[in-house]
Write a protein that binds this DNA or RNA. Structure first.
Lengths: 200, 200
DNA sequence: TTAATAAAAGCACGAACGTTCGTATTTGTC
DNA sequence: GACAAATACGAACGTTCGTGCTTTTATTAA
């Protein structure tokens, strides 16, 4: 790996950490460069624009999420085991990478960019679509494997699961509710149970 | 009402609308003043600081929410009718004041300020605590009136309800999912049904 | 070791930010 | 209608922002 790529990696790692605190658009090249002990223009040259830097941070985050959350879950058997592994990995991700570190970069960026068209929003949208697809596929597998009732709506399940994640983020970070994790887990179990014994 | 207060009211109304798009900290005195056709310093004099302006916007929003969502719900009978009225009013609020208008100011501000101590965060925290208390009380009333099982945990219910609101906000604004409202309503019904026939 | 290339630095720019200050104008009261 | 108080204005301040140049230093391949 060339010197340039190594430096770029260091920059993105630092930018990922900082963006959780100040948001993606809250990143500044000046602050980032001084933290890393380099010049503004030197750092700037790696990305050619602030916007490119933000997209690069999103790509970097996406890759890391795939490597630490999605990937390992795929090693578990299709259906409920894989879905549960994914959920557990996700919680670990949230606890180690977001809560206590300024919040989740993706959650923040989604609020910032949900009405600002451009390449950042495009990248964010594609990230979210992929995430929803992953969840939906796993729920669908639960049905095929006979772990869930055939009447379960995978997209509705994905909607509720992501909602709970957002709620957990809010209750633990904004309200400082120490029971948030417990609440998240309990709601997830309710969701799973409802998946098995569907009735309505 | 004096001239000064009328102007202040106009400023806050405009600031409320704009903060949904750019966030609370994204408000700028220059932009706000030029939109309203007045000078920066003239507008500034009403609040003495940017921070005070942000707190004023939060107070204004809180009052409006109480007037249009919470207040009318209190006219309905205790228990399920009131809870449903509150939920319906909330949806109307979201549709008329947030979705399609740059997003919810409160949701955005919570992300911005969840790790920035100060008077803005204090104000936000108190707002959220009051909201959670209101929901919890209504659910508790559902139990007392016999509409809900006594085993229902009102705080868990409030957690799930707010999570769904956040999810709805995300799916409709970020993903542009046209079924978001339908999903929100369906999940709410599941939540209500679970409240009635509690089992676990 | 040298030559070509990549990476980083130095410096400056225009614009936008919140804020301050002195002054002008409008409002409300007697 | 006079006069104090409230309200608004215009200009300027010090900072910080992203970005564009030119020059210097470090890396890489022949």
């Amino acid at each position: 790996m060339s010197k340039g790529l190594k430096t770029k990696e260091l920059i993105l790692k630092e930018a990922f950490a900082k963006a959780g605190e100040v948001g993606l658009s809250g990143l500044t090249i000046g602050d980032l460069s001084s933290t890393l002990g380099m010049s503004k223009s030197g750092l700037f040259a790696h990305f050619q624009s602030k916007e490119n830097l933000e997209v690069a941070v999103l790509d970097w985050t996406r890759a890391k999420f795939a490597r630490t959350v999605l990937g390992p879950a795929l090693k578990h058997p299709r259906g409920e085991p894989r879905l549960r592994a994914f959920f557990d990995n996700w919680i670990t991700w949230i606890e180690t990478e977001t809560i206590g570190k300024g919040g989740c970069l993706i959650v923040g960026a989604s609020i910032e960019y949900d009405d600002r068209p451009g390449v950042v929003r495009d990248s964010l949208l594609s990230l979210h679509q992929e995430l929803q697809n992953s969840i939906t596929r796993m729920v669908h597998a639960c049905i095929e494997e006979g772990h869930f009732s055939a009447e379960v709506d995978p997209e509705q399940f994905a909607f509720e699961l992501y909602s709970l994640i957002l709620g957990f983020h809010h209750f633990s970070r904004m309200l400082g509710d120490e029971k948030s994790l417990q609440r998240l887990r309990q709601s997830f179990e309710t969701l799973m149970k409802h998946g098995k014994t569907y009735e309505q």
